[in-house]
Each structure stands twice: as structure tokens, then as C-alpha cells.
Design a protein around this nucleic acid. Structure first.
Length: 225
DNA sequence: AACATCTATCTTCCGCAAAC
DNA sequence: GTTTGCGGAAGATAGATGTT
């Protein structure tokens, strides 16, 4: 939230987008390489000329859900911070179909992947309500341990093993572009702040940024605060 | 301290199109 | 029909960065 707030301060006119990138299900033994592939594909995706043109920064998080048949559905939730010119015309704006194509290219898939893209509306009037609505929505999508744990112990062990192998050494969240720099700056400042001023952590966070974060959490269907 | 991952940069590759 | 030139993307590598 602090990173986003700072980014928003530096680039007042920037807009936030949610992007969800998916791929077809993976089996346990493929999980790790699939997740790695997605990570690499994402950095490639944002190097493509059109997306890079207006991209200021991004945060991505990895999510893996478990299917009943023992396969895994891995996908990435990305929060994009773009210049306002992104919405200007078709030379800048990337619609859902185009995102899908770009993602397909980056991932070298022989099928059209499912991609969800959504702009965050900065409607100040509805700001509070939609924040609350987002929070409520989030509550509905609590990640259930039921997904992981069943009565079948052998299966459970395999699932945990797969997840461990698949996620080992990969970050759940990573930052890119402007966000990365800001995060670094904030970390440095944090150190100083602790040394000099202990109780000055009441940071004013812009309402819009709160809304973005809440909504992103909802999309990620996770509960990191 | 050792290891893994990420990033930046450089080189190679590919496809398109213009020129011959 | 073949060659040449160009731009963008893929691939590789090394160095930086982050993790354990």
C-alpha cells in the first residue's frame, strides 16, 4: 500500500489496471517449471513495445489453486500502473483480446489463454462504498484449507509436496518498474525512521490507493494485509 | 558465505518489405 | 525470385540482487 501510495504521489495522473493471466492446468511435476515460465513470460510481456509504452510499474502475485482431479491451476494477478495515455487510442490501449494474444506469445502457447483485464475507476464519489463492497466481496472468497486438505491423506501429502516443490524459491510477490524503485527507497527510509523516529508510522494513504489495494486483494483472493 | 533468482545488455534470429 | 536491410523479439550471458 505504501509503495502504491508513493507511486500515486509521484505520478498523479497514473491509472491502475488489474490483469489476471492464466494458463492451462499443470500436473504436480510440471508445476514448478510452469510457474517459472510464467514469471519469465511476464517480464517479457512487459518488454513488448506496446505494453511497455505506457507502463510505469507493476506488482505481480502468483496463485495456485487445486483442482479435484489432482491438477493445479496456476495464474498470476498483476496490478499495473500505467500512464493516462494508455486509454488514449488504439495505438496505446490494449483490449482483452490483445492482452490474450500478447500473453500467448510471451508464453509460447498454442492456445488462446484466458486473460482478465479491468481498469480501476477512480470515482471519488463512490470511493467509500466500493471500498466496503470490495472488502465484503473479499470475505466471500476466503481461501479454504478444504482445497488442500481432504480425508485422503496420501493425496494431501502429494499436494503439499507439489506445492512445496512448485513454490520453492519463487517469490509470491514481485515488483517491477517504478514500484521496484519506490519499494527500495521505502525500505531505506524505513531503516532511518526506526533509528530516528519510532512512532511516526501514521502514514496518510490516499483513498484511491486503498481502494486499489482492497480490490487487488479481492482479485488475488488472499488475505495479506 | 553460498546459492538462486532477477536484470540489463548484447548478440542472434526472424519476418517483413523494398530493391535488384 | 532472390537478396538486402531493418526493427522487434528471443536467447544468452554476466553481473547485481536477494535468500537461506
Amino acid at each position: 500500500m505504501q509503495v502504491l501510495d508513493e507511486a500515486h504521489k509521484q505520478r498523479k495522473t497514473g491509472r491502475f489496471l488489474f490483469l489476471t493471466l492464466t494458463a492451462e492446468n499443470a500436473s504436480g511435476e510440471n508445476l514448478k517449471q510452469e510457474v517459472r515460465k510464467m514469471g519469465r513470460a511476464i517480464s517479457k510481456l512487459f518488454q513488448y513495445k506496446k505494453p511497455a509504452k505506457n507502463l510505469l510499474g507493476y506488482v505481480r502475485s502468483t496463485e495456485i489453486t487445486i483442482n479435484k482431479n489432482g491438477t493445479y491451476h496456476q495464474h498470476m494477478h498483476v496490478l499495473l500502473f500505467v500512464k493516462p495515455t494508455y486509454f488514449k487510442d488504439s495505438a496505446n490501449y490494449i483490449n482483452q483480446a490483445e492482452w490474450s494474444k500478447l500473453w500467448q506469445r510471451a508464453m509460447k502457447l498454442d492456445y488462446q489463454p484466458i486473460v482478465n483485464v479491468e481498469a480501476v475507476r477512480s470515482n471519488k464519489a463512490k470511493g467509500k462504498n466500493s471500498l466496503i463492497a470490495s472488502a465484503q466481496e473479499t470475505a466471500k472468497y476466503q481461501v479454504k484449507s478444504k482445497d488442500i486438505l481432504t480425508n485422503d491423506q496420501e493425496r494431501d501429502l502429494q499436494v503439499v509436496e507439489d506445492l512445496e516443490q512448485g513454490l520453492a524459491g519463487s517469490r509470491q510477490i514481485s515488483y517491477g518498474g517504478l514500484f521496484k524503485e519506490i519499494r527500495k527507497q521505502l525500505q531505506l527510509e524505513d531503516v532511518d525512521a526506526h533509528l530516528i523516529n519510532v512512532d511516526d508510522d501514521k502514514v496518510k494513504i490516499d483513498e484511491m490507493v486503498r481502494e486499489v489495494v482492497a480490490k487487488w486483494d479481492y482479485q488475488r483472493k488472499n488475505y495479506f494485509v
